[in-house]
Design a protein around this nucleic acid. Structure first.
Lengths: 216, 216
DNA sequence: CAGTGTGAAGTTGTTCACAGCA
DNA sequence: TGCTGTGAACAACTTCACACTG
């Protein structure tokens, strides 16, 4: 009999990606509850807000290790703390941003990311009109300065918001100087060594889903 | 015996969402190939670029109705045309944008969306400092003007990029004046009537996945 | 009972195996 | 032989059923 095995060598349960993607949404809801003075919440309530099965909610939450009390539900404060810790939203993680166009500028300005563990420490661009300017205290450097800066202020995450076909080039450079994870906002596919993490955020994927639902 | 049935009443094959989400990525790759003068491409090549199983590529492409030729592969030009048409990226779809903050401004500036079928025709905000300004020819209106504008220039899509807790309020208004689909960039969950489409784009979900992969 | 928590069943999506074709 | 295309096997994710708990 083949039994499904959720336990990796290290004894750490590996979390399904869909669960990981839902947790920030729960977190936002719990924070709103806290502001509203609500102290307890049940899986059924959560499920109805997100229009999903309540069992799935309990399964998702169980991965974080939070314990609910029967008849009472989960403690909101405890949920927030547990999920924040579980998602590493409490640790400061440095990031470099490559390509200070509209989207790049928006991400730097987006104070939200700082509250969720991500600290953009520098931007890079090739446009002389942008180099040496500051956005919210984040200095924009020439791409050539990347090597020196990556030694002085190391970062593990590289955010790529370059236009057109330069994503691969920038990714190669980023990897060469120590970036461990690439957050790719361009629609291009990026090739990286085995041990480097790539997460693609594609606005066009979301658009495709919307248009499909609207028209079919 | 229960047989799996992909065909809906209307005879239309319904496309799996994961397929829909992958197609824009392929499209971007095909466009790059075209620029490079490449005329044919095989599922194996595509699969290696995106690090996936080649069968999955052929399955994805088969949903669009494009036909490949054995030993030769698919015609790049034909792939582009077929996918663009399949995803409705060739039709102009009007959209209103609510909340002209950093992210909202970036989306309006993002010329990319226009090339993918989405036309932001107006922005709305409550900040007097922003109202009546223009961004790339897109006028920003007071939220109160929404009713009149939605009659003059109807739009089916509402993009919500408001800060904090106002997403639900804005969504209610949008639905009341004829919006059929809401593209929600806030982390909040939005309640809408049964027949309204909601697509949530959560940057924090992506961040959660990255941090998890980095740290575990 | 009204809730959590969990193993089993069901469903959806991906990979495998192989038929067909130029 | 190299590649498309597809039905069957497999794996991942979600829902169901129900035991348990205060």
């Amino acid at each position: 009999m083949k039994v499904r095995n959720n336990i990796s060598n290290s004894g750490q349960v590996q979390v399904p990606t869909p669960t990981l993607r839902r947790l920030p949404g729960y977190l936002s809801y719990f924070k709103a509850l806290k502001i509203g003075g609500v102290e307890q919440v049940s899986s059924g309530q959560i499920a109805s807000v997100f229009k999903m099965d309540s069992t799935l909610v309990t399964k998702d939450l169980s991965y974080t290790g939070v314990k609910g009390r029967t008849k009472v539900g989960y403690n909101v404060e405890q949920l927030i703390e547990t999920i924040v810790r579980f998602l590493d939203f409490n640790t400061r993680e440095n990031a470099f941003l490559f390509g200070v166009g509209n989207l790049g500028r928006a991400l730097i300005n987006y104070q939200g990311l700082q509250h969720y563990g991500l600290n953009i420490v520098a931007g890079f661009d090739t446009d002389p009109g942008v180099i040496n300017t500051q956005i919210r205290g984040v200095k924009i450097h020439a791409l050539d300065d990347f090597r020196d800066l990556s030694i002085k202020t190391p970062a593990r995450i590289g955010i790529i918001t370059t236009p057109d076909g330069s994503a691969q080039e920038v990714a190669d450079l980023a990897v060469a100087w120590g970036i461990k994870a690439i957050w790719n906002f361009t629609p291009q596919s990026i090739k990286v060594p085995e041990n480097i993490i790539v997460e693609n955020t594609s606005i066009y994927s979301d658009l495709a889903v919307i248009l499909n639902k609207l028209n079919h």
